[in-house]
């Protein structure tokens, strides 16, 4: 195979291939959202920089930093040849957390894969006991994890949140819906994409074992719930008629009730590795 033949073969592969029908409006909307967030971040960053500068000026002006009245900057001992930081290895913290090197966490982790498989099993058991809808074995799966460095050596972290998406099919329809679940560790802020996706959150009184409080958001594509459990975990579940990553066609509906979603989120088996 030479250069020219490869070029021809590659174009043969792709040039007649169907392209997903995606509304240009959606690309514009995503761009606007990113631009808005970026501008917000720039404003916040500038405000933070101003605040930091003011604090520094105040400290220097008041002569703080050293007992002799000199600024702290000149007193800092700089090691001219710092020893290289050793690569962190997994360690257990007194809080029962396991710190792993941050770079390692981006690789497939057997413990995380096992827990995520468990999530799917719980969702299937709670929301699709007949096995008619959830793509438990198919490719429409993903893993989202969030790490925290709190209490861990530099360059390592512990799993502070973990979630997954599972596709939802309806017989006779070509579209694809999704069930998303996100489990947040005690004491962590439940700021996942599920919570951020909707603005219609309403408190929902519930009397489920082990549940302190719950919130529900009804949205165009379905329903999302957040459950705050007495063991400190927060569990978020979203049932959406469109699996935006994988399909441009929604399913007609997800045959699950708000009560089913709340009961699923209250399941004490939703924990973290």
């Amino acid at each position: 195979m030479d250069d020219e033949l490869l070029t021809r073969c590659l174009h043969d592969l792709t040039d007649g291939a169907p392209v997903p029908a995606t509304a240009t409006d959606e690309d514009v909307r995503r761009g606007r959202t990113r631009l808005r967030r970026r501008r917000t971040a720039v404003v916040a960053g500038a405000a933070g920089a101003v605040a930091t500068t003011l604090v520094c000026v105040a400290l220097v002006g008041s002569g703080q930093g050293g007992p002799d009245g000199r600024s702290g900057r000149g007193d800092v001992a700089v090691d001219p040849s710092p020893a290289p930081t050793p690569a962190p290895t997994p360690i257990a913290t007194p809080q029962g957390r396991t710190c792993l090197p941050t770079t390692e966490r981006m690789r497939p982790d057997p413990a995380i894969s096992r827990v995520v498989r468990g999530y799917r099993e719980i969702l299937a058991e709670r929301l699709d006991p007949q096995g008619a809808h959830l793509d438990r074995w198919q490719v429409t799966r993903s893993v989202q994890s969030s790490t925290s460095q709190s209490g861990c050596p530099e360059g390592s972290g512990w799993t502070a949140a973990l979630g997954t998406k599972v596709g939802w099919r309806v017989a006779g329809e070509s579209g694809q819906g999704v069930v998303r679940v996100f489990v947040v560790a005690p004491g962590r802020w439940p700021d996942s994409s599920i919570v951020a996706s909707y603005e219609t959150w309403q408190d929902r009184p519930v009397s489920l074992p082990g549940v302190v409080s719950a919130e529900v958001a009804e949205h165009d594509g379905g329903t999302a719930v957040v459950v705050h459990r007495s063991d400190g975990f927060t569990v978020e579940i979203d049932a959406n008629t469109l699996f935006g990553n994988n399909s441009v066609t929604p399913v007609s509906g997800l045959d699950v009730t708000v009560e089913q979603l709340l009961a699923a989120a209250a399941d004490p088996r939703f924990t973290l590795p």
């Binding site: 981006m106 074995w137 490719v139 989202q144 969030s146």
Partner: peptide, 14 residues
């Protein structure tokens, strides 16, 4: 390839 959300292919499972 670096994103936390990543698809897992299940080829071989079913």
């Amino acid at each position: 390839g670096r994103r936390p959300w990543r698809r897992e292919t299940a080829a071989g499972e079913r």
